[in-house]
Design a protein around this nucleic acid. Structure first.
Length: 187
DNA sequence: GATGCGATTCAC
DNA sequence: TGAATCGCATCA
C-alpha cells in the first residue's frame, strides 16, 4: 500500500477512474474502499460540466491535478470529484460508492442509522457520510495529512454506462468492483 | 432578477 | 416505482 500523490492525477481521466477501484480513501477520521467511480472528460464529453458551464472550464484552468471539485446535485446532494489534468486531456473522476472501513459511528451520526452497506453506496451518500460539502470545493485535500488515498487492488473491475446523465449515455466510463455489496447500482 | 434543471435519495 | 426538492449556474 503506497500513498497516491497529486501526480497520480496527472494522467488520463478514464485510466484514473479505473485505477481508483480498490484504493482506500481516508477523510478525516473516516476511511473506505473505493468500489465505484465514473470518468468525465473536459473535451468532447457532453456529460461533463465543462461542456456547458464556463465556471467548470475556469475551474480546470485555475486548479491543480488532484484538487476537489464539489458541487450540489438536485439542490440537495453534494457530489465529490477529483480534477484530472493529464497530457491526454483533462477531466474529472466522480466517486460514486465506497465500502466503509473506519469511522462508521461518525458516518451514522451524519447520515442516520443505516446498514453498513448503505452508508456510502451512492455519490450523495458518501459525501454525507464523510462530511464533505461545498466548503471543500477547490481544496487540495491530498496534501492535508488527515485525508488521502492509498493504492489497492480489487479482484476484478468491470465497466458500464454512466448513471444519471442524459448526454453521452453510451460511453462505458463507469467502473466498479462487481463483487462489492456497496455499489449504488449493480453492474 | 428570473428561469430551468439536475452526475440523487428515500419512502411508498 | 415515483415524487420531492431547492440551490446554483447561466443569461437577460
Amino acid at each position: 500500500m503506497k500513498n497516491l500523490s497529486p501526480a497520480f492525477f496527472s494522467s488520463d481521466p478514464v485510466d484514473c477512474a479505473r485505477e481508483l477501484i480498490g484504493c482506500h480513501l481516508r477523510w478525516g477520521g473516516c476511511s473506505g474502499r473505493i468500489v465505484e467511480t465514473e470518468a468525465y472528460r473536459a473535451l468532447g464529453d457532453a456529460a461533463c460540466h465543462t461542456f456547458v458551464r464556463p465556471s467548470a472550464r475556469d475551474f480546470v484552468a485555475t486548479h491543480q491535478a488532484g484538487d476537489a471539485y464539489v458541487y450540489l446535485s438536485y439542490g440537495v446532494h453534494w457530489l465529490f470529484n477529483i480534477l484530472i489534468k493529464g497530457p491526454q486531456g483533462d477531466g474529472f473522476v466522480l466517486l460514486r460508492a465506497l465500502e466503509p472501513l473506519e469511522g462508521l459511528d461518525a458516518m451514522r451520526a451524519r447520515r442516520g442509522n443505516y446498514a453498513d452497506r448503505l452508508l456510502m453506496a451512492g455519490p450523495g451518500r458518501l459525501t454525507q457520510a464523510l462530511g464533505i460539502s461545498g466548503a471543500e470545493h477547490g481544496c487540495r485535500w491530498l496534501e492535508q495529512g488527515q485525508s488521502g488515498l492509498t493504492s489497492g487492488k480489487p479482484d476484478s473491475i468491470v465497466s458500464g454506462p454512466r448513471i444519471g446523465i442524459s448526454q453521452a449515455v453510451d460511453l462505458p466510463w463507469r467502473f466498479g468492483d462487481p463483487a462489492s455489496k456497496c455499489l449504488s447500482k449493480p453492474f
